[in-house]
Design a protein around this nucleic acid. Structure first.
Lengths: 234, 234
DNA sequence: GACAACCTTACTTTTACCTTACATTTGATT
DNA sequence: AATCAAATGTAAGGTAAAAGTAAGGTTGTC
């Protein structure tokens, strides 16, 4: 697991929720030793939900027991905000908990105390499956978009991409050639609850089209679905 | 787990590999009871590889101990043919096996003897993540409506849907092939307490029928219930 | 057969988005 | 601190697809 092929998984944003500070610190150090760079830990249900909104974690490790509510109801609330994989932890070796957790739609389940190595491995197993397409290379017909290098190459010419352009393209790509609403795009590029950037988005869309499209005025790759949003054809 | 939302997972092709025929039969009956319809079981590494080529399973449950080689090397060979999720089984409660399995890239790991229910739940957890559906896909006979992409495909042709069309179809679909009144449809598409759009709705219904119906003038999918409303046959 | 509910089509209007040129911000460099 | 270039944001007129309208036609029910 020390190869470089899965290193991008270490950049994923993790959220740890547990009421015991010692355990929280322990897990954090296990994960840091493994190379995970973006970890946020909170002790309560309330803070967990807050972090879901502002931090937008890509995976969560939840304790079943929390001071202000159980992990299961937290899980359900989280799923309404984000569709991220979840690994449950429980102190009690009660099979009931396992069934409840997995039955709700959790991705894995571990009983405390656990071996650090097992946590790491199960974490990788989940991340691998959920985020395997993070090669950051988007191939659309004759056009190759390299998110990592922030450039587009088409017909032998290389066009550089700006930060906002990369943000927009990434959001569109992650949607998996489904329609992304203008609101969602604005939120993911400029941050939550920000309005008034619709026109700016439009200007960016135009600039992107001038780089990726054969004919920017009648786009074939980044298309408009009037009244609904934009779509990237992959 | 008996809801109908995850029923499509039960159609997935499963491959069981274990050298003990009793265990093989036991797992098969557990899975059959749950509703899994496509199960193939083999006792050897050699046959497992053969099945990967001809049966093309969508998930595999592998025993670590096999008469003609261990499960780990089988796993590596399988991955060269198919990139499917794998759940390992082991009789020995050796942590080493767990690390080897997950380290290689397996998706989950269970120690025998296990609870049938846990197997089922872990299986669902893996399948859900690997084959998560587009919940916005409506299949009506020969016609597939993709709400997320706002398009309808019928007989190989793809027709785009407009915003209002998507709204109407979504409302009809959510009603679950029950009759939806014209008032209700208008309210859900144009907003509450708005009248005077009945005729506009009719025009939209016509346009939808031209996209989804074989014969738009005698509809079979989006039918009129005179005096009551419209109904989507699912 | 008379009425009402709904269909159908062509036509008009509107809205959501396009486009372009220009203004402002950001951030690197001296 | 000043300068400059690149990136980003803004404004405004333009446009085509989508939505709405109207009017004559059709179907089913009492």
């Amino acid at each position: 697991m020390n190869g470089n092929k899965l290193d991008f998984l270490k950049d994923k944003r993790l959220l740890l929720v547990d009421d015991e500070p010692e355990l929280l610190d322990m897990i954090e150090s296990i994960l840091q030793d493994e190379g995970f760079s973006s970890i946020r830990k909170v002790p309560t249900r309330k803070e967990a939900l807050e972090q879901c909104r502002i931090y937008k974690p890509e995976i969560a490790i939840l304790d079943v027991m929390l001071p202000d509510g159980d992990g299961f109801s937290l899980f359900k609330e989280m799923r309404r905000i984000l569709d991220i994989p979840v690994l449950f932890l429980t102190a009690k070796d009660q099979p009931e908990d396992l069934f409840t957790g997995l039955g709700l739609g959790a991705d894995d389940y571990m009983v405390k105390p656990f071996l650090p190595r097992e946590l790491i491995l199960r974490l990788y197993a989940i991340l691998r499956r959920c985020y395997k397409t993070d090669d950051s290379l988007i191939t659309l017909d004759e056009c190759i978009i390299d998110i990592g290098k922030a450039e587009v190459s088409r017909k032998g010419t290389v066009f550089p991409l700006t930060a906002k352009e990369v943000g927009i393209l990434t959001t569109l790509y992650k949607a998996g050639n489904r329609i992304v609403t203008i609101d969602f795009l604005c939120n993911s590029v400029w941050g939550d609850n920000r309005y008034g950037y619709e026109n700016s988005l439009m200007a960016h869309i135009r600039r992107i089209r001038e780089k990726i499209e054969e004919n920017p005025s009648s786009p074939a790759l980044l298309v408009t679905i009037k009244g609904l949003g934009y779509k990237l054809n992959v």
